[in-house]
Write a protein that binds this DNA or RNA. Structure first.
Lengths: 218, 218
DNA sequence: TTCGTATCGATAAAAAACTCCCGAGTCGGG
DNA sequence: CCCGACTCGGGAGTTTTTTATCGATACGAA
């Protein structure tokens, strides 16, 4: 009977970022055997407003039943499809340092449709070794291999200073989406998608609140 | 002459998250010897709206001069103070796995006033070893050591399933702010600050856009 | 069956964030 | 010295996001 994926265009960005949280809750409920779930319950699990959850879910196109809620498995499937996590994306990872190692070893990516297939680095001491089963190649080979394997996703875990060069190589290799962990603004053509992970922004929130005095009283 | 830190209360969260980016730009300009900088220039470096930058900076309380802009060093100092990054926060890290290792080895934290002083884990094989110079202790000792060393910041890099227990220990040890890398909602008293880092939320943005077809045309 | 309650979906209101606009101040060039 | 161009700061206006309200519907209990 096929579930509509809604009008994909322009789901609010904050809503989109909340979807993974919903999916986690749904998967937990499903594993417990719960059949249906209300927005109220989901909101309770995540400390959100029930109306907000309802609105977010509505944006995926699913419909629920009054007094009952949504079918857990169906809803999980819809959210997963909306995120594109039902299909696996093969990705190249640049940077075999500590961060790169952490990413390669992060098991939870398998639940997110992300599969790191190879790692690249400039350090001759690392090239030829393996990280969690993935071979580490010389950075110069990334372009060629990305093209041959039709890789569309690149993860940048290289220090800021070398990131632009790495990203240029990715793009030359046909990569279309870049998940960037370096604290720099990457220069890319506008057809390339870039998503930045900023640890310092997150830490800023915590440390600024600490400085304000919140968290020190009592 | 002392710079005012503005009315600390309630800077918009998005603004706060942009401050680290401004600080990076300012530090780079300062190292180049540039004396003054305009919002226009900062915005150009980061692909933001100049007005937005001006408003964000205004919230820190600094004042600029028309046609000139702001003194780079002064502005950097104000932003740093606003974030609380001029004073070092000693922190405990729970979890000596891949993510924990990456965090301990992440040099950039020293620019953010964050200093990880010790690591904790339950794995007997890790206890007693060192990670980037920091000793790894048994988790049971965290409570006692946190109290003795008056640690206020805890970083949770433990798998989701064990996170709540770890966080309970942190709070028992007097920790007031928790930087949480596990994909779970932590149950804490409302006096405790929690900031969640959600890799999956970031990846969701990229993968949803990929699925939408953006990034595949052309 | 009927009533009461929980929940959905839609709409409206409120709040938050971003963008635009303009007057005022400052510097550089003529 | 005076003019023009650039930039700040404040306020207005727009967009985005969140929260509240209301009628409709489905289930359970009496």
């Amino acid at each position: 009977m096929g579930v509509y994926l809604g009008l994909n265009r322009s789901m609010p960005l904050p809503s989109l970022k909340r979807l993974p949280g919903y999916l986690r809750v749904l998967q937990r409920l499903a594993s417990r055997g719960q059949e249906s779930v209300s927005c109220t319950q989901i909101a309770g699990e995540l400390d959100l407003d029930p109306t907000q959850v309802r609105k977010d879910l509505a944006a995926t196109g699913i419909v629920g039943k009054p007094r009952v809620g949504y079918q857990v498995k169906e809803l999980a499937s819809v959210v997963e499809s909306f995120l594109g996590w039902n299909n696996v994306s093969d990705a190249f990872l640049a940077g075999a340092g500590n961060l790169g190692s952490a990413l390669v070893n992060y098991d939870a990516f398998s639940d997110c449709g992300l599969n790191i297939v190879a790692v690249f680095d400039v350090d001759p001491g690392k090239i030829g070794t393996r990280l969690n089963g993935r071979e580490v190649f010389a950075l110069e080979r990334m372009r060629e291999l990305a093209r041959r394997m039709r890789i569309k996703v690149g993860i940048n875990a290289v220090p800021a200073a070398h990131s632009q060069h790495v990203v240029d190589q990715m793009i030359a290799g046909g990569i279309r989406a870049i998940w960037n962990f370096a604290p720099v603004k990457l220069e890319v053509p506008e057809t390339i998608l870039v998503e930045n992970v900023s640890l310092s922004a997150s830490w800023a929130v915590l440390s600024a609140r600490l400085r304000e005095g919140r968290g020190l009283e009592g």
